[in-house]
Write a protein that binds this DNA or RNA. Structure first.
Lengths: 347, 347
DNA sequence: TCCTATAACTGGAACGTTCCAATAAATCAA
DNA sequence: TTGATTTATTGGAACGTTCCAGTTATAGGA
């Protein structure tokens, strides 16, 4: 059944009594070969336990059918959802996405990107790790391999990015909190070396300006973009005099951390302190209290990124338009009115 | 800077004024070449923007440095944690893991496995999709590529599996519920075509036997292994007369669903109904109430699987021992005593 | 019948590496 | 000086495909 050394098209050719060229044609489904011959060849393929060697084929053919997805944090369900959206599109196009995790580590990211390039990927979809240097993609661009950024972008880069409208999302969320009567607001989590952070914080600040929230009433606490980071942010913010009564969080993970820290202090999100997240991951709806969050249509962005990638490959270009996805605020229980204010809407 | 056609070692050789063989030796860090020559070559590599072509190299070398991880549900954070454990080990060994998601779909799995084989992976770590046919790995075994199953195994297969002690974990959890005074117990979620299901259910039943829980007091509801599935299970179970007062869930996702459904009915997990999960994902600790769960040391199992894989590759064998990981029950708030029983331990 | 067109198949030259055997240069022992 | 040994470098064949330019065989038209 299984031969010791792996079978090649030459073995198949011998077995079927045809030439290697014929076998090659059968493998790529050419209409040039007689049906009976094709059947004979396919039988031989089965018999010798043949495995197609894509590496050898790629030596001659221009490009491969694999595209790489490089993601900065696979344990964040948000990115898993993104990946799932992309997979749907790629599968339909007969392209296989290989995923690699960089764990938010630029060095690891460098290795992973190198490895994918060596493997001969047709394109790369990347959510860059924090602290990625501007030059990290120069070599890849030079090699003419299309790259698109998903969710995150780099400060000064010509690489197309697919991302939600972070500024507007943060605006919406902040306005919502102000309308609920909150006048001392916080922005929790993330760090300023991320473009996304600047966009979201920018939206927060714009809404503060628009509603004339004085500078002294805005608390900005940077922190890890994880539950742990969120917990730390809340502690820091509540320690100041005149602490905030509501917070917009950099993402849902931070928001969950904030809610957890509130509970530890005997406070309840929604009634004692308003919390709004960002990304609207699946859990947001199921938390208790359910988390108000900015929905970014994660899977949709994944699909969009995949489509852009396919188009770039097809038109063999390394350029494409950015794409800013629409956002919407999903109001749930975690963002109740300020208890000391009479301005708030009815909850 | 960037040449149109991609550079090869021949271009480097020309640039550096040496032979292609010398370049090849430099690339693999051979000690045979004079340091100054190596420097000269490395400079040329930089100048021409060279990308190593692993496909071409694999044509001559025995095997590659990539191993494939094929996972049935990336959106379950449990698998993401598993992946992270493996990555730690592989990174240290200079091996790059490429991850692919099968979304619990055997057809998709077939495609993904095929693609990875064609790519020439050195080995495969697989958490097989539900309904995988026993023959699905025959071709891969025949090709001599080592495979290890992680977390799940196939009914009649010689492929080594790395998995937690499901039977014991379920026993522990069930005993815990019984000691809390519960006498009408349920097992929620999963389906019997999964070996894991049989193991966990087996543990549940053994504990029931040991404590003489009558057959009529055991409720077994199969269902999707997701939040949604868990919600459905609870509804089904509460509809019967003499419903259960406690449930062991197939995994944490199901348990979260059960807790959500309880809340919808105005009941609270822990006080009105006891819930125990399985896997102890990171969220379990942060839920409200915090979820009692069977901890399986996910990342540890991932590391173990990676080590077994590396050893198999190194000793070029396709056989290895199974590995059953130790489990422990982490008691939190969701598994309180039966309110109608006076037998329960103090909570 | 011969000529041309089409259909079905084939041999050989790439593709970019590795690795072996061979060579050239430098060093050493006598 | 000579030969042996070591060090550094090199050419060529091979790996498993694809694809171009043939080569047969078959059929159709005159």
């Amino acid at each position: 059944m299984a031969s010791r050394a792996k079978a090649t098209i030459l073995d198949i050719a011998r077995e079927a009594g045809v030439s290697k060229s014929t076998v090659s044609l059968v493998l790529q489904g050419s209409g040039l070969i007689r049906p009976e011959t094709a059947v004979k060849v396919r039988k031989a393929i089965e018999d010798v336990g043949y495995v197609y060697n894509r590496g050898a084929a790629n030596l001659r053919k221009a490009h491969s059918n694999v595209i790489g997805m490089v993601i900065n944090d696979l344990t964040n369900p948000f990115f898993a959802e993104l990946a799932v959206g992309m997979e749907r599109v790629f599968q339909a196009a007969g392209v296989v996405p290989f995923i690699a995790n960089t764990a938010e580590n630029p060095v690891r990211q460098e290795e992973v990107l190198k490895s994918m390039m060596e493997q001969g990927v047709a394109g790369l979809i990347v959510s860059p790790a924090r602290g990625t240097t501007p030059g990290a993609f120069r070599r890849i661009e030079a090699a003419g391999v299309p790259v698109v950024f998903a969710m995150r972008r780099l400060p000064e880069s010509r690489i197309p990015a697919i991302a939600p409208d972070n500024h507007r999302g943060a605006c919406l969320a902040t306005e919502h909190l102000i309308r609920k009567g909150h006048r001392r607001l916080a922005f929790f989590g993330g760090s300023s070396d991320l473009v996304v952070y600047q966009e979201r914080l920018g939206g927060f600040l714009e809404a503060c300006e628009a509603f004339a929230i004085p500078f002294a009433n805005r608390t900005i606490v940077e922190g890890e973009t994880s539950r742990k980071g969120g917990m730390a942010c809340l502690e820091t913010a509540l320690a100041i005099s005149e602490p905030p009564t509501a917070a917009l969080c950099f993402n849902d993970a931070v928001a969950f951390g904030v809610m957890l820290a509130l509970r530890k202090r005997g406070l309840e999100a929604g009634t004692d302190f308003a919390v709004v997240g960002f990304d609207d991951v699946a859990e947001a709806e199921h938390y208790s209290p359910a988390l108000t969050s900015v929905a970014v249509d994660t899977a949709g962005l994944g699909e969009r990124a995949a489509h852009v990638m396919l188009k770039m490959i097809q038109s063999r270009t390394t350029r494409a338009e950015d794409h800013i996805g629409a956002v919407s605020l999903v109001v749930r229980e975690s963002s109740g009115p300020d208890r000391n204010s009479q301005v708030g809407d009815a909850a």
